[in-house]
């Protein structure tokens, strides 16, 4: 999906993702300086990443106002946790995207609990068929790793693949997934667990 509609995005984010590119180095530098309480660096960090992180929040929260609130929280967390960022362990954008994803999921779970709405219709965005489209900007995290993940997902049973995507991008639990598909909880668990085992084997096999 994104390949057609976001023609201008891939080159930009590809540059952000590579630590060898000037923008990639700028991002790492900005995050490390942010960890030293450098407010100028924090603004640069925001300029480099806000559209990407807002895209993630919007995708998962499914509504604009919530996504804006969550994005605010995400940058507050980034500021406070930046001192613990370890450039040797994670890429800066992976580190930040994980915070954005997890805060958005947390909002979805809390929101659903509060309203008691657990109907399949409430999980709309996760049903998006575009989820199966290959990522247009896979260079964001590291081309090879992301490509490998997408390749390995393709060998899974379709139900397992969709469940994994829906859990990651929609915050769906096993119970939500079983309800959505109209299958017993135990069936859903064994389908997904088989898929995760296959996925792990595929990801750890050196090609």
């Amino acid at each position: 999906m994104a390949a057609e509609s976001d023609g201008s995005t891939p080159s930009t984010t590809a540059e952000i993702g590579s630590s060898r590119s000037p923008r990639g180095r700028a991002l790492t530098g900005a995050l490390i300086a942010t960890g030293m309480q450098d407010q100028e660096a924090f603004r640069r960090l925001y300029d480099l990443t806000a559209t990407k992180l807002f895209g993630i929040c919007l995708r998962i929260c499914g509504e604009r106002q919530a996504a804006e609130d969550v994005l605010q929280e995400v940058y507050v967390i980034i500021w406070r946790r930046a001192p613990s960022f370890d450039a040797a362990r994670a890429s800066p954008i992976t580190w930040m995207a994980t915070i954005a994803r997890n805060r958005s999921i947390d909002w979805r779970r809390a929101n659903r609990r509060a309203t008691g709405d657990r109907s399949p219709g409430a999980v709309g965005p996760a049903n998006d068929p575009a989820d199966d489209a290959p990522a247009a900007d896979m260079a964001l995290i590291g081309q090879e790793e992301v490509q490998q993940l997408h390749d390995c997902l393709m060998i899974l049973n379709e139900k397992a693949r969709q469940a994994i995507r829906a859990a990651f991008l929609g915050g769906l639990t096993y119970s939500d997934l079983a309800q959505r598909e109209g299958v017993p909880l135990a069936t859903m668990k064994s389908t997904v667990r088989r898929g995760l085992l296959q996925l792990r084997k595929c990801l750890t096999d050196d090609l």
Binding site: M1, A2, S5, D6, T9, T13, A50, T51, K52, F54, G55, I56, L58, R59, E68, L71, A90, T94, A97, T98, A100, R101, A130, D131, A133, P134, A135, A136, D137, M138, L140, I141, E145, V146, L149, H150, I164, R165, F168, L169, L203
Partner: peptide
């Protein structure tokens, strides 16, 4: 977590307010 982070990669960028 690091491996799954790639799943967020296909999401389209959006301009925050």
């Amino acid at each position: 977590q690091d491996r799954f982070a790639g799943l967020a990669d296909g999401t389209a960028a959006a301009e925050p307010p």
